[in-house]
Computed example of a mutant assay.
Amino acid sequence: MTIQPSRKPYPSDLSDARWALIEPVLSAWRVERQRTSLNLGGKVTDLREVMNAILFVNRTGIPWRYLPHDFPPHTTVFSHFSAWTADGTIERLGLRLHRLVREKEGRDAEPTACVIDAQSVKTATSVPTGTQGIDAGKKIVGRKRSIVTDTLGLLLLVMVTAAASVSDNDAGKQLLTRLAESHPTVTKAWVDTGYKTQAVEHGARLGIDVDVVPRNTQVKGFSIVPRRWVVERTFGWIMMHRRLARDYETKPEHSESMIRLAMISNLAKRATGENTITWHNP
Rank of each mutant, 00 (worst) to 15 (best):
T276M: 07
I62K: 08
A245I: 00
L14R: 04
T161V: 11
A17Q: 12
W190K: 09
E110A: 09
R143W: 06
A162N: 00
N266K: 13
W229L: 10
F235L: 05
S27E: 09
W190D: 03
T2M: 11
A124I: 09
D168L: 03
R227C: 07
A271F: 05
A180S: 14
W64I: 07
R243N: 02
L55R: 05
E103G: 05
T45G: 02
R246D: 07
A268P: 00
E201S: 13
A163E: 04
K251I: 04
L95N: 13
W237I: 02
G273H: 06
R107E: 15
P5C: 03
Y248R: 00
M258H: 04
L154Y: 05
E23M: 12
S6P: 06
A268F: 01
R243V: 01
Q34R: 15
A162F: 03
T76S: 13
V31A: 08
P282G: 01
P184L: 12
P226C: 04
V50W: 03
A136E: 13
K173L: 01
A118D: 10
E201M: 10
I224G: 05
K144D: 01
V158D: 01
K188M: 13
P128T: 08
S37N: 03
G194Y: 00
N39M: 13
T185M: 10
D211K: 08
A83C: 14
A271G: 09
L261A: 05
Q4P: 02
M240K: 06
Q4G: 05
S255H: 10
W29H: 11
R227I: 07
P11N: 07
E249I: 02
R143F: 07
G273C: 07
S6F: 11
L179Q: 01
E91W: 03
S37F: 01
L261I: 07
W84G: 04
D135Q: 06
T278H: 12
D247T: 01
H80V: 00
A20S: 11
R33H: 15
D170Y: 10
T112M: 08
L40Q: 15
I62H: 07
R30I: 12
H280L: 15
K104H: 00
T185V: 06
